[in-house]
Nucleic acid binder design. Structure first.
Lengths: 347, 347
DNA sequence: ATGAAAGCGCTAACAG
DNA sequence: CTGTTAGCGCTTTCAT
């Protein structure tokens, strides 16, 4: 069934049908006839054909690393909501961080002639290879990431360094000097945070001992909780344990809390813990976690804003929007234990 | 740019180009020429045009209630993975449980000529109105839900009654008789579970007193934790407090655990707690929650299997696949406290 | 305001 | 195996 059928049924031309469907001026009488025919035949227009003519699909693609990740999904949620206002639909593509899948999906999206693409935490390989720049020449593309060096593509950059700085200032201000850093093995965001942790300390003349850096294999799935708990168990049992721990996400932070509670350490009296991303995990337990809110909602909104700008074709100059993370202080952080200065000296 | 340009560049006809693009037999020499031209001109075929001819879009739609919900996203994750094998892409549509949005999205998906639709927990209104049946006549549609009465549309039905039964058997077997039930205000899944809870008890001659049923407003977002904690605080302070609590999801269960721990109640020695959905929250805290695993992975897989069957057009008889939930027993449940029989009598 | 007709980019007979 | 041609369903001039 197509507009020809409707035209015949309504006794008008296909042009008139098309006009009615697109809310263009048409004599009231004809509009009624067409609308009746549409209803009678239960006609639903074919957007593929429309898109072929209009050169737009009314769809955009969102590339993420993982669907089972609160952080990405909160952003996706915000994006999807904004998209509704323009009647756009969203292709969800999850790459598991695999460069090859990222390529494939990107290509597939272009084939489908999406009106725009939002990429969350793109792989460095594909950025370096120029893939994104290439795609960006064909279709509006927004990169959401934490690498401030990317200037040639529209991007929403999350100033993780600043977020990390806030964490360290908070902890340092509470008197903490022995601050452990817990991360997953691979990932640029981990690298950025570690670097910020290290340089904050070194600016203050502190060189963290190697055991202050704890790395677990799987930092980004439900296994992270258990792995973090196990890894921190060791660390916390040691005589020279830290007085505070920063974990690169709330999953790992939850593991730290569990390890501490298993050892009878009170939080925050004996140990301060800071998480990251401020997901539901931060507020799910008995002790609510101090965490870094990456502003997922405004982040998603900013990405969509940039996308609309690109779609509507303003100036083609690539833009960057900075998202400033916010430290949310809850009950998992407190002043350094009174005897910790002694501890530091005594060993 | 289109296949005409490629044909010209390669010195062959558009039919040959099309054949190369679709991996149909072509003389090796021509294949090479075409491939070279494609590469040289950086050509990406237009799936809208292809879809217009083939009457397929290589895309399917997934309708869910909420993106910020582990449960839905785990299913979506499983679905997306399976879709890759056929090169299908996924339109993600989140309805917030609003009937009107559900209509709109469904219609939009049909307009886009998706090859199939998976609906997770559809609204009853739209089912009753025949909307889904109507859509199912146009495009393969799979309903994922907990209503065993739906027979006229392909569906994956989650036997929540059975899951609930397993919970009750477990608790009852541990000696619990005073089992509270915690739910959100609105939702068919809540109703089904409550009904199963009630009938299990009544089969054993127990009529739960009204205060055993605790209802909170927002059962399905991060606020649920706090609301559950508050609501259960009251309940647990009462002299006639229950010995076990079942919560309709892990969010609420987490709230129960927090409330208990705030009151100094040990889990499971003083209180047993059971959650539902077995999301990451079940294993995120110090005490790992006994919970009901709804088998999201196999559920998503089953939905895709049904979809493929419908797309490939086997027999048109609507099918139903039953998913049997599994009780995952962890440390949050244990034998009823020794003095509870006394407690029951003494008040 | 309306209709006839020319495509949008691609696939699939049909002849060769 | 290859090229020609007729659409797929829609929008959009261009006349009327």
């Amino acid at each position: 069934m197509n507009i020809n059928d409707i035209a015949r049924e309504a006794g008008v031309s296909i042009a008139t049908v098309s006009r009615v469907l697109n809310h263009l001026p048409v004599r009231e009488e004809n509009r009624l006839k067409v609308e009746a025919a549409v209803k009678r035949l239960d006609f639903v227009p074919n957007y593929l054909a429309r898109g072929l003519m209009n050169k737009q699909s009314l769809a955009i693609g969102v590339l993420i690393t993982s669907i089972s990740n609160d952080y990405y999904m909160e952003i996706t949620d915000a994006v999807e909501r904004r998209l509704r206002e323009r009647g756009l639909m969203l292709f969800l593509c999850s790459t598991d961080g695999e460069t090859e899948l990222e390529r494939r999906y990107l290509n597939d999206l272009v084939s489908r002639r999406v009106d725009g693409i939002i990429v969350l935490d793109s792989s460095d390989e594909n950025y370096a290879s120029g893939l994104f720049r290439g795609v960006a020449q064909r279709v509006p593309l927004i990169l959401v990431h934490s690498n401030p060096d990317i200037l040639d593509v529209d991007s929403v950059v999350i100033d993780q360094r600043l977020g990390m700085r806030r964490v360290m200032e908070h902890l340092y201000g509470l008197g903490h000097r022995e601050i452990a850093f817990l991360r997953g093995r691979a990932g640029v965001p981990y690298d950025i945070k570690e670097e910020a942790w290290r340089s904050f300390l070194s600016e203050r003349g502190i060189v963290p001992s190697p055991e202050r850096l704890v790395v677990i294999e799987q930092g980004n799935a439900s296994e992270a909780i258990g792995q973090a708990e196990e890894a921190m168990g060791e660390t916390l049992r040691s005589a020279s344990r830290p007085t505070a721990v920063f974990a690169c996400n709330d999953l790992m932070a939850r593991g730290v809390v569990n390890a501490a509670s298993r050892l009878g350490l009170r939080i925050p009296e004996d140990l301060s813990v800071v998480g990251h991303d401020d997901t539901v995990l931060a507020i799910s337990g008995r002790t609510q976690l101090t965490s870094v809110d990456l502003k997922m909602k405004s982040l998603g909104g900013a990405a969509v804003d940039l996308l609309y700008r690109a779609i509507d074709g303003g100036d083609p100059e690539p833009r960057r929007v900075f998202i400033v993370p916010e430290l949310v202080v809850r009950e998992s952080t407190g002043p350094v234990p009174a005897d910790s200065a002694f501890m530091e000296v005594s060993r």
